[in-house]
Nucleic acid binder design. Structure first.
Lengths: 145, 145
DNA sequence: TTGCAATAGGTGTATATACGCCTATTTTGC
DNA sequence: GCAAAATAGGCGTATATACACCTATTGCAA
């Protein structure tokens, strides 16, 4: 028999933050062998898809603060996975791009991410995982300003 | 007509993290007038309910890493909202307790938290907020070891 | 064309998060 | 009663997060 579910947090935000800590550690463990955490994996994965892109535009894509993105890129740049180059078209702007090494690291990480995703759906239930993703996307789309 | 919802993140973890950033900023804005963020509000709120308690036990209650809890308590201790006192029964242990000033701050923050909660339910929908809280509690109860 | 508003991004500061390793203390097994 | 195991917690380090404020550059309008 399943463990009885605890009462949900009255505070939506605290429940969300707690669950995020829980799940982040889970994904980080899965990705540990390739030396990436889930935040870094998400960054390079999305950067691979969105090609060379400016910082502010990419921060928008990632749903993160511009300055947070800038700081999170430092370890990736230091390790040679991404490049941050001045844009000749607009000298204020800097273009983010994945290096060949970054692409290789992403390719190495993909199976581990996929295994984490499968493992989660096995433990939590594919239907509930899907329902959660949809609710979170709707929350993201909600204007909270 | 409502904005069309974006496709949900394929990655449950990234969707969760993004939503957490979004919602944390929303609650932090609401709580800003009393000089607390949502993490600190959750800490002192739960500490008020769970009385004097040891660090590891409280970390378990909060669903956070023991060392994270210790570091998060420092600003609250510095500002006189909580005390961290040695336990005479067990000299390894330290007892966390809310000060009178901490109780006052909590009382001042409660209406702001409540307004944030109401504001969220108004924008996102009370039914969806409830469904999200339930799913998150179930995720928390899922063994991911 | 020039001066100002808008935009791109960085920096300083503060808090949040957690892993690995450490010390101190208590408990337990013999 | 003592040595080993278990437990409580701190510290070093690294990354994550975001606000306020700053500079540089671009675009626009009088």
């Amino acid at each position: 028999m399943l463990a009885p579910a605890p009462p949900p947090d009255r505070c939506s935000c605290h429940g969300l933050r707690k669950a995020t800590r829980h799940l982040t550690q889970f994904y980080d463990r899965h990705l540990h062998p390739v030396g990436l955490n889930i935040g870094q994996y998400a960054l390079i994965g999305r950067l691979a898809a969105r090609g060379p892109i400016a910082m502010t535009a990419f921060a928008e894509v990632m749903g993160m603060d511009r300055t947070t993105l800038g700081r999170n890129l430092h370890p990736l740049e230091r390790d040679g996975l991404v490049t941050i180059a001045p844009d000749p078209e607009d000298r204020r702007s800097r273009r983010l791009a994945l290096t060949v090494e970054g692409q290789a690291r992403l390719a190495a990480a993909r199976p581990l991410w996929s295994a984490a995703q499968d493992d989660l759906e096995c433990r939590f239930g594919a239907d509930r995982a899907q329902a959660l993703r949809v609710l979170l996307a709707e929350l993201l789309a909600t204007d909270l300003a």
